[in-house]
């Protein structure tokens, strides 16, 4: 049995207006300490203004082996992109 503290995934907001982005992970006995560790490990150079931590075991992820059936159906729906539509030259901007 490993004596390790639980692993927490760390998400950092670089500055106001941006999303929190995954930065890495830390071990800590509780969430509060995980935030403190994350601050020391991932924001020594003003990399963030806000930190989220989530227990790694609480993350549910998609199965890489099923990536095909998950994501490929979007591939042939190119009409979802604005570039699919040709505009007459007279329409200068839309």
């Amino acid at each position: 049995m490993s004596k390790d503290w639980p692993l927490w995934e760390v998400f950092i907001r670089a500055k106001g207006g941006l999303d929190h982005k995954h930065a890495g992970s830390v071990h800590a006995p509780d969430g509060e300490m995980a935030v403190n560790h994350a601050r020391d490990v991932y924001t020594r150079r003003m990399e963030g203004v806000s930190i989220w931590v989530v227990k790694s075991t609480d993350i549910v992820s998609s199965d890489p082996d099923a990536a095909g059936q998950m994501f490929e159906p979007a591939k042939d729906k190119i009409y979802r992109h604005p570039t699919f539509y040709e505009l007459p030259d007279e329409v200068k901007h839309m």
């Binding site: 490993s2 004596k3 390790d4 692993l7 890495g24 992970s25 830390v26 071990h27 020391d40 490990v41 020594r44």
Partner: peptide, 23 residues
């Protein structure tokens, strides 16, 4: 302090392969 941080980034990367920090 950075060197300590680098060690921690790397231990975490190794852990994603199934190694435990403890070991």
């Amino acid at each position: 302090q950075d060197e300590g941080g680098h060690g921690l980034y790397l231990y975490c990367a190794a852990e994603t392969l199934g190694a435990s920090r403890d070991e």
